[in-house]
C-alpha cells in the first residue's frame, strides 16, 4: 500500500512546493533499499568460502567435489585463453561458450521469427487456429529430447542439428504465449477502439499487438530456458564443441573442476538472459508490473 502512495505521488505537479517535500536520506532507508543486494552477496560469498573450507579440511576426494578456488581458476583460465589456430580440439571454455551462445541466439532468433507470426495468426484466425493447434500441442507436449536421435539421423553431428533442436525447444512457448496474448486481449479495449472508429486492421495493429507484446516477451523468456536445455542436450548427444560437449568431456577426463566451472557459467548465462527479458518486459509494459509492486 505504501508503494501505491508513491505511485500516486509521482503524478502530482512536482513544481508545487507544498506537495513534494524533501525528506532526505536516513541510514535506515539506505539499508532498506540495499539490504537485498547486501544479503545476497554475503550469502553467496559465504557459500563459496564454506565450500572451499569443506574441500580443504573435509578430506573430500577432489574428483567428486573440487575446491571452489580450483573451479574459479578453471573458469578464469578457460575464459581468458583461446585455442591456437588450426587446433583440432579446444580446451578453452570461451571457444565452447561462444559456440553455444551463438547457436542459442541464432536458434532463438529463428524461433521468434516462426513463433511470433505463428502465434499471432493462430490467435487472429479461427481456421488457422483449428488447423495448426493439434500439431502445436502435439509437438509442445512431446519431450523435445525424444527428437534428438531423429535430428542426428537427418542432419548428422552438425551445428545445423544443434540449432534445429534449439529452435524446436524454444519455438512453442513463444508461439503459445503470442497466441494466448491475442486471445486474452481485453474485450473492453477492443470495444473502445471499435466505438472510436477502428477498422479490423487498426484493431490488430493498435490494440491487439501492443497488448500481446509483453506476452511475447514472457514467451521468449520461457523460450530461453527451453532453448538452453536444447543447447546442452544437442551438444551432449552429438557434437564436438559447445558447453554441453565440454561438460561431457571434462567428466570423461576426470576434470571435475572444469565441469563445475561450465555448470556455473551456464547458471550465470541463464540468469542473465532471463533477467534481461524481465527488465525488457518491465520496460515495454510498465503497467503490468505496476499492478503488483
Amino acid at each position: 500500500m505504501a508503494n501505491k502512495g508513491q505511485q500516486n505521488a509521482q503524478v502530482f505537479d512536482t513544481d508545487d512546493p507544498d506537495r513534494i517535500q524533501d525528506i532526505g536520506w536516513t541510514a535506515r532507508e539506505v539499508w532498506r533499499r540495499t539490504r537485498g543486494f547486501v544479503v545476497t552477496s554475503i550469502n553467496i560469498i559465504t557459500f563459496f568460502i564454506l565450500w572451499e573450507l569443506l574441500t580443504i579440511y573435509g578430506n573430500i576426494n577432489p574428483l567428486f567435489l573440487p575446491k571452489a578456488s580450483d573451479m574459479f581458476m578453471e573458469l578464469w583460465v578457460g575464459l581468458t585463453t583461446r585455442a591456437p589456430e588450426g587446433a583440432v580440439f579446444s580446451g578453452s571454455i570461451l571457444d565452447h561458450f561462444l559456440h553455444s551462445f551463438n547457436n542459442l541466439m541464432f536458434g532463438l532468433g529463428i524461433a521468434i521469427l516462426i513463433g511470433v507470426p505463428g502465434g499471432l495468426l493462430m490467435g487472429g484466425n479461427k481456421y488457422i487456429e483449428a488447423i495448426l493447434s493439434p500439431y502445436v500441442w502435439a509437438l509442445a507436449s512431446l519431450p523435445r529430447i525424444a527428437l534428438v536421435p531423429l535430428f542426428i539421423l537427418f542432419l548428422g553431428f552438425t551445428t545445423t542439428m544443434q540449432v534445429t533442436i534449439i529452435v524446436i525447444s524454444a519455438v512453442f512457448p513463444i508461439m503459445i504465449n503470442a497466441w494466448a496474448g491475442v486471445k486474452t486481449t481485453e474485450k473492453s479495449l477492443l470495444a473502445a477502439a471499435r466505438v472510436f472508429g477502428a477498422n479490423r486492421r487498426q484493431l490488430y495493429v493498435k490494440v491487439v499487438l501492443p497488448y500481446t507484446l509483453p506476452f511475447i516477451i514472457s514467451g521468449i523468456q520461457q523460450g530461453i530456458g527451453r532453448g538452453l536445455i536444447g543447447v546442452v542436450i544437442a551438444e551432449l548427444f552429438g557434437g564436438s564443441n559447445g558447453l554441453g560437449y565440454l561438460i561431457q568431456r571434462s567428466a570423461d577426463t576426470f576434470n571435475t573442476a572444469m565441469n563445475f566451472a561450465v555448470l556455473l557459467l551456464l547458471i550465470v548465462m541463464s540468469l542473465s538472459l532471463i533477467n534481461f527479458t524481465r527488465w525488457l518486459e518491465a520496460y515495454v509494459a510498465p503497467w503490468r508490473s505496476a499492478n503488483h509492486l
Partner: peptide, 29 residues
C-alpha cells in the same frame, strides 16, 4: 464519430499516455 462512449472499466490503452489516449478517436478515423 457522432456517438462516443464512456466505459465502466475506463478501457484506456495502458501503453499510451493520457494525451495519446485522448487523441485515439482522431487516429482511427
Amino acid at each position: 464519430p457522432d456517438r462516443a462512449m464512456v466505459f465502466q472499466d475506463y478501457a484506456l490503452l495502458p501503453w499510451r499516455t493520457v494525451e495519446s489516449n485522448v487523441r485515439m478517436p482522431f487516429e482511427f478515423q
